[in-house]
Amino acid sequence: MPDNTLVVNTVLGPVPADQLGYTEVHASLLSVVPGAEYAPDITINRAEVFEILRDKLTAFHNAGGRTIVDASGMFHGRNLTIALPILENLATATGVNIIASTGMGPEDMLGGYFLTPQTNPPTPWPAEKFADLFTKEITEGMVVPRVERRAPAGLIVTLSTEAGMTATDESLLRGAVRTSLATGVAVSHTFGADPLAEIDIALDEGIAPERLVLRGIGRREAPVSDIAARGVWLGIDGAGQPALVKELIDAGHVHRIILSSGAVGVAKGHDAPEAEFTTVLTDIVPELLAAGISQADITQITDTNPRELLAVR
Rank of each mutant, 00 (worst) to 15 (best):
M1W: 09
P2G: 00
T5H: 10
L6F: 01
L6M: 04
V8H: 07
T10H: 06
V11T: 03
L12W: 00
L12C: 02
G13V: 13
P14D: 09
V15C: 07
L20Y: 08
Y22D: 03
Y22V: 13
V25I: 04
S28G: 14
P40D: 10
I42C: 03
N45V: 10
N45Y: 00
R46V: 05
A47V: 08
V49N: 04
V49M: 03
I52A: 01
L57R: 04
T58V: 13
A63S: 13
G64T: 10
R66A: 07
T67Q: 06
T67S: 10
I68Q: 01
V69L: 11
R78P: 01
N79Q: 15
T81F: 03
N89H: 14
T92M: 09
A93I: 01
T94Y: 08
N97C: 09
I98Y: 02
I99Y: 05
S101D: 03
S101Q: 00
S101W: 03
G103I: 07
M104P: 05
G105V: 09
P106T: 12
P106C: 08
P106L: 08
L110Y: 08
G111T: 07
Y113P: 03
Y113D: 14
P117T: 10
P117R: 10
P124E: 09
W125I: 13
W125D: 01
P126L: 07
D132G: 11
D132M: 11
D132Q: 14
T135C: 13
T135W: 05
T135Q: 13
E137M: 15
I138R: 04
I138E: 09
T139C: 00
E140N: 13
R150I: 08
R150K: 15
A151M: 08
P152K: 15
G154I: 05
L155G: 07
I156Y: 08
L159M: 08
S160L: 13
S160K: 12
A163C: 06
G164H: 10
A167R: 15
S171Y: 02
G175Y: 04
G175K: 06
R178K: 15
T183G: 14
G184Y: 11
G184T: 13
A186Q: 09
S188F: 08
P195T: 05
E198Y: 14
I199S: 07
I199F: 14
I201C: 14
A202C: 15
A202W: 12
E210F: 02
R211Q: 14
V213G: 13
L214Y: 11
R215G: 02
A222G: 11
D226H: 15
G231S: 13
G235A: 11
G238M: 11
A239E: 11
G240A: 09
P242A: 05
L244Q: 12
I249D: 04
D250M: 03
A251L: 02
A251F: 01
H253S: 09
H253Y: 15
H255V: 08
R256D: 09
I257H: 04
S261E: 05
G265R: 00
G269P: 02
H270W: 13
P273Q: 10
F277G: 02
D283I: 12
I284Q: 04
V285N: 01
E287D: 12
E287A: 12
E287R: 10
G292A: 10
G292W: 12
I293G: 03
Q295A: 13
I298W: 12
Q300V: 00
Q300S: 10
D303A: 04
P306C: 10
R307G: 00
R307H: 00
E308N: 02
A311M: 08
